[in-house]
Design a protein around this nucleic acid. Structure first.
Length: 377
DNA sequence: AAATCGGGGCC
DNA sequence: GGCCCAGATTT
């Protein structure tokens, strides 16, 4: 235990409360026993297949188990082994990922599957260092896979673990800064059960997810209350300390849902998103971004200048209500102009593709939401 | 070290 | 509306 923490602990103990100083072995034993009794029955806990464990860890990055579970099932059903994932089309991988967010995870997932298949003979490396070199695998995921799939004694430090450990040992340093992480790691290295590190790592995460929750944790009934320095100091809800501030950006998207009728039905124009922006690799409609919502006529004029719409051919048949789409760092206001064109050549084919079934393409949630509601389009 | 990458659940 | 979630990558 770092000296700083030990000092705080002694201060609390000096208040006169009886405190069990938390023999690390005892905390470990209580945690793993609690886990055996209370763990959820999750599919990736019934396998030692590194592919399935890796897949679950990528899906669960910044994602609740409840949200990621159905995605895991669909991926395993579609790609039972890493080789099948490697052979898939990236569009199909992104389509399966659609709605889960942080799409770089899906792109890196596919890249790593190809590397494992082609360069590693389909076998995942078993060490933290080698796993860390894979795309989309950072410190957390490398620790999780090496400990859970291969039994390596490497502690995981995710949001749950940071909360549990910062409370148990009253770590008041910001857990999102390097010094705070260092303190937590040095504690975890003493806590981890070297006989079954995968079980311990999942135990402390599960304890954070189900019991030691961000708000209103049931400390009165907690099996670790006797060891918890935050409880002794009455600072449970103040921990963990985080310093990051998120600043939000407002954006205004004017989408053009351009329809073109051919013999076999209506076709639509889609655009594959490129560059450093959100939703890289996904598809949406031709659009113009403006600093704020402008008059419709002005937006249409800009669209003509940019040759998205050809004067005399394009007819705007409807304009949607405003859609509000909230992301972590952006608040997007979007509206959709429904447009009919008479000639195929009215739309720039270098930028846009003409498709009949846009549902087959990976679409941002905003576009999906629009399509579900907009009957008149 | 800070910014950015989604979407959803909870209070 | 703010915080958080089995974080990683880029700047």
């Amino acid at each position: 235990m770092p000296n700083e923490n030990k000092k705080k602990f002694n201060n609390i103990a000096a208040n006169g409360e009886h405190i069990n100083f938390g023999n690390p072995m005892e905390i470990t034993q209580v945690l793993t026993a609690w886990y055996d009794e209370n763990k959820r029955d999750l599919p990736w806990r019934n396998t030692k297949d590194p592919y399935r464990i890796w897949l679950s860890e990528i899906i669960l990055q910044q994602t609740r188990v409840d949200q990621g579970l159905s995605y895991y099932h669909r991926f395993i059903e579609r790609f039972p082994a890493v080789q099948q994932l490697a052979e898939a089309d990236i569009n199909d991988v992104l389509k399966l990922w659609q709605g889960l967010g942080y799409y770089s995870r899906a792109r890196n997932l596919h890249e790593t599957a190809k590397i494992i298949t082609d360069a590693f003979q389909g076998k995942f490396p078993d060490s933290y260092e080698k796993l860390l070199q894979l795309k989309g695998v950072g410190p957390y995921t490398a620790s999780a896979v090496s400990s859970i799939a291969f039994g390596k004694p490497v502690p995981v430090l995710d949001g749950n673990v940071a909360r549990v450990v910062s409370r148990l040992f009253a770590v008041t340093e910001p857990v999102n800064e390097s010094s705070g992480k260092k303190s937590l790691y040095s504690i975890l290295e003493k806590l981890i059960d070297k006989n079954d590190p995968g079980r311990f790592n999942q135990a402390i995460m599960e304890f954070g997810a189900l019991w030691c929750t961000p708000r209103n944790p049931p400390c009165e009934k907690c099996v670790l209350s006797a060891f918890c320095m935050a409880r002794a100091g009455k600072i449970v809800e103040k921990l963990p300390v985080k310093t990051k501030k998120i600043n939000q950006r407002k954006r205004y998207f004017n989408y053009f849902v351009i329809k073109f009728k051919q013999d076999d039905g209506w076709y639509y124009y889609l655009r594959k998103r490129t560059g450093k922006d959100i939703w890289l690799g996904l598809y949406d409609f031709p659009m113009i971004e403006t600093p704020s919502f402008q008059e419709q006529e002005k937006v249409l004029e800009t669209a003509r200048l940019q040759k998205i719409l050809i004067p005399a051919d394009a007819v705007v048949t409807a304009v949607s209500d405003n859609y509000r789409h909230q992301l972590t760092h952006q608040l997007i206001h979007a509206r959709f102009f429904s447009v009919e064109v008479k000639n195929k050549s009215s739309v720039n084919f270098h930028q846009y593709i003409m498709v009949k079934d846009f549902e087959k393409y990976p679409l941002p949630k905003l576009i999906e939401n629009f399509l579900l509601q907009a009957n008149e389009f």
